[in-house]
């Protein structure tokens, strides 16, 4: 607004405090993290410069390869399931009048729970000797599907992933629902007049209208996937070995259990780089789609 632009001091009053705090505690640490990632340091004795050794060690490590694969699969599944279910449930809610508030509240309920609490719940639920999952499978005659949810190396990762995905679907339901509700009603009315069924309304009108909101969800899911920590750490310590570890857990273990702070920073840098890169790619894709439609 032109009228405000004459207050040149405004930047210093309104922005400077946040700018300083944010720069000092969020941006500056990234730079020093980069510096630490080039050292060998156990946080007790002085750091020793080792060049790119940490990165080299990382990319040679088999464990790191497993963790990277886990992270990618986790991201892929989270995107498909959370956006998919998010769109489905929010669209259903959007059309619903009776019970709308109750359904909405229940959908969002797990989002407000501490991930640590959810992880503690699920470790009990998945315990294959005493937990309800195997008991339910048994009671409905599907004993063949019983698994050692937290130990089977081919399954444990998905076991740990499930509460993560489950917990945050509700957030995307609410965000997408908000997006749908902000679509001008006239547009939908005209589509109804055209006789479009709800499926067509959904794919042809609603989804294109809320592309930017879907993109926000994708961004949040991506950021969330790379930050993931509690579920894996609390349920399995990332194990057995690193079979159920994500980058975040791997970093924690290497940093605080192994006392290898340099390597920990290197992992942190990898996390940062990948999450920025992925978001950029998504952004480019969304721009492209926007452009085409």
């Amino acid at each position: 607004m032109n009228i405000l632009r004459k207050f040149r001091w405004a930047f210093f009053v309104f922005v400077a405090p946040s700018f300083l705090i944010y720069t000092y505690l969020v941006i500056f640490p990234i730079v020093s993290s980069m510096a630490y990632s080039l050292t060998k340091w156990n946080a007790i004795s002085p750091a020793v410069f080792v060049g790119l050794n940490n990165y080299e060690a990382l990319f040679k490590s088999k464990d790191f390869a497993i963790v990277m694969t886990n992270t990618w699969i986790g991201l892929g599944l989270a995107l498909v399931i959370q956006v998919g279910f998010g769109l489905l449930i929010s669209f259903l809610l959007y059309q619903t009048k009776a019970g709308y508030r109750a359904f909405r509240a229940m959908a969002f309920l797990p989002v407000v729970l501490a991930p640590a609490a959810v992880a503690l719940m699920f470790v009990l639920i998945f315990n294959s000797d005493i937990g309800p999952v195997n008991k339910i499978l048994e009671s409905i005659g599907l004993s063949g599907l019983k698994r050692n949810w937290l130990s089977d190396k081919d399954i444990v990762f998905y076991t740990v992933l499930s509460p993560m995905i489950y917990q945050f679907i509700g957030l995307y339901v609410i965000v997408l629902l908000a997006g749908m509700q902000s679509i001008p009603p006239e547009i939908l009315e005209s589509s109804a007049i055209d006789g479009a069924g709800s499926f067509r309304t959904f794919t042809m009108i609603i989804v294109p209208m809320i592309w930017d909101i879907i993109f926000i969800c994708v961004t949040l899911i991506t950021a969330g996937s790379f930050k993931a920590f509690e579920h894996s750490y609390l349920m399995t310590w990332g194990g057995p070995g690193v079979r159920s570890a994500f980058l975040g857990v791997y970093m924690y273990l290497r940093t605080f259990i192994d006392a290898n702070f340099g390597l920990g920073c290197a992992i942190g840098m990898v996390i940062l780089f990948i999450s920025l890169a992925v978001t950029m790619i998504f952004r480019a894709v969304v721009r492209r789609l926007d452009y085409q439609s």
Partner: peptide, 20 residues
């Protein structure tokens, strides 16, 4: 050292869970 101990602990977990 810590890393050796941790690697050992997690290798035992893997042996027990038939991962290796």
């Amino acid at each position: 050292d810590n890393k050796l101990q941790f690697d050992y602990q997690s290798a035992v977990d893997e042996l027990w869970s038939k991962s290796i």
